[in-house]
Design a protein around this nucleic acid. Structure first.
Length: 212
DNA sequence: CTCCCGATAT
DNA sequence: ATATCAGGAG
């Protein structure tokens, strides 16, 4: 049973890799802390909009210490269009403070340490670990992964933690980070929440939910 | 389960 | 004009 599922997943990965050669993280960043803050900003917000926000944000604040010392109101102006900006501004500043005080200004490189940062849960931690450090401890489960993993019948759950466990069972560890990228890319471009384009999908032959 | 919020598709 | 998009905390 599980073996069949692993072959099914291998086929999914193969087909998606063919369509999306080298997909990487859709968020723009140079330093690990930039990816961390970009990912905090991406909560309930498209990566596209986050990139617009961070383009200016990263010019204004150029180190973790700049965020730790930032004026909340001023930071809010930069990130406003990403939504939930009061929470996010607080979370970024307070995470920056923890990183300065407890981790000597370096973003910690373990799930356990990242999860303590305000505004950081498993999705954000997985994105940072997998992309900035190449130290995946899990699979980043966002709204696209939730939707498509269910459409592909890779899980029956709507709970992100359970979905992540289900996926970790059947996706080879070396693909954990890339698997999220592939589903997110598919989700943004083809298997959209609103108007899924099944006829243009690389997985139409094998997807149990494909419509003609 | 509710609150946090702006942008965009319809 | 309004529904829908898109994570985390309490």
């Amino acid at each position: 049973m599980k073996q069949n599922k692993k072959e099914y997943v291998a086929e999914i990965i193969k087909l998606l890799l063919k369509s999306y050669k080298k997909v990487k993280c859709a968020l723009n960043y140079k330093e690990p802390y930039e990816l961390l803050f970009a990912t905090i900003l991406s909560a309930q917000c498209t990566d596209e909009r986050v990139n617009k926000v961070t383009e200016e944000l990263f010019k204004k604040y150029r180190a973790v210490a700049d965020y730790a010392n930032a004026d909340v109101k001023e930071l809010e102006v930069y990130i406003r269009s990403a939504g939930f900006y009061r929470n996010k501004a607080k979370n970024i500043i307070n995470s920056a403070k923890v990183i300065i005080e407890k981790y000597d200004g370096k973003v910690p490189q373990s799930m356990q340490e990242l999860l303590v940062l305000p505004g950081v849960a498993r999705k954000t931690a997985n994105v940072v670990l997998g992309n900035a450090f190449n130290k995946a401890e899990g699979i980043a489960v966002d709204t696209h992964v939730i939707r498509i993993a269910n459409l592909l019948k890779l899980t029956k759950s709507d709970n992100p933690v359970k979905i992540e466990q289900d996926l970790m069972e059947i996706v080879p560890k070396k693909y954990w980070t890339e698997f999220s990228h592939l589903l997110q890319t598919l989700g943004r471009r083809v298997c959209k929440a609103r108007n899924p384009n099944c006829s243009g999908c690389s997985l139409k032959e094998i997807c149990p939910s494909a419509k003609a």
